[in-house]
Write a protein that binds this DNA or RNA. Sequence first.
DNA 1: GGCAAAATATGCGTACACGCAAGTTTGCGT
DNA 2: ACGCAAACTTGCGTGTACGCATATTTTGCC
Lengths: 215, 215
Amino acid sequence: MTTRRTGLREQKKQATRAALREAALRLALERGPGNVRVDDIAEAAGVSPRTYNNYFSSREQAIVAAITAEREARVAAALTAGPARARLADALTEAILEQYTQPRDRDEMLLVTTSPALREAFLDAAGAIEDPVAAAIGRRLGDADTSTARVLAASVAAAVRTALRQWLQPPVEPPATGGLVVPSGSLPDLLRSALAALAPALDAAEEKARQRSLR
Amino acid sequence: MTTRRTGLREQKKQATRAALREAALRLALERGPGNVRVDDIAEAAGVSPRTYNNYFSSREQAIVAAITAEREARVAAALTAGPARARLADALTEAILEQYTQPRDRDEMLLVTTSPALREAFLDAAGAIEDPVAAAIGRRLGDADTSTARVLAASVAAAVRTALRQWLQPPVEPPATGGLVVPSGSLPDLLRSALAALAPALDAAEEKARQRSLR
DNA sequence: GGCAAAATATGCGTACACGCAAGTTTGCGT
DNA sequence: ACGCAAACTTGCGTGTACGCATATTTTGCC
């Protein structure tokens, strides 16, 4: 009874949502994202244009949703499946890295690069990992301090967004930088170093939870 | 020569922007936010409706901009003015708390509560403190690791957003919580505890910078 | 002062987001 | 099996976002 609420209803809703996502991605890939109207997506998914906006509140949202749809679930799964004895920060880093290193999504990752609006929507969508991460952190912290878990999860999401934003940045012409600017490394490296900055906060929370449980 | 680029041009731009902000806020306060159209704001500011969208890309943005316009500047000022010997985390917390505790903005803070769209825009606008905070942290860290500063600033902004979101939440009817739910404390408390969770990460970065400067 | 280039303002046209008030489907109690 | 209430879909209407082409202003330069 984790996700189910009312059976057929929920089932159809998810189906419609998935149909819209996939239609949006398919059309965007074959025509280019600029040549896809909302009406086209709705038609391809077999619903009215108005219904489209009951599911997604912007044209780009459906496209990026198709790309990031399962990331959140996979992050959560990787976190709960992982060994509980590892450092929370390490478990998180591993789980997240895993999701952004899959070479399977090559085309999609290239697609989001093409338009500013898509880039923006993609960064927004990355925030969706916050909820599962908050749940996972909350579990690791013993469900005691939920609001700390929320803050840490929000920070993790922010760090991921920072890394993604830097990775998405067009390699601008260095006008006269005396070699002081790092040339925007690979995504895994960017993610690692971004999350590394948060590790002390995660460690501290973990330690506090441990002390609480001993008392 | 910090902000100036070409004199008159920039000056007029800022004037137009300010006029739009203030017109938007004034109209929203006197008619209620739902009864203000973009055309009204543009007319009140003496520009064409199209020009409005050259400055703000949503109806709500102008309203919240009027409210949060100076927050970023004030945070930056408070950070650079503060004693450099204090802990970075403390300086940050103080500077931010100061900005959200001013009783002068009572009406405005009530205004953003009234509509979901406004709440959302307000949370978005809170992200504007990221840039000045990043600059300030970067300075404190000796301008060595810019990307760490960015990540930390993004996390701080995320923490602030988390606190604000919780504060904005309508006090929902507790359906059957056995007294386990904290009843959404005051904004200063929420901000303090949110930022406290990040303090260890800020400490660690500061310590690292100190060691680097000694070497 | 006058001029060419760059930045900005405006009008227009198209596509979009979303509230509202129907109509339709689903779930549940009896 | 039946019917009711809640949830979902749909069409319509209004207001909004923004690309593009054009007119206007500002600036650096001579």
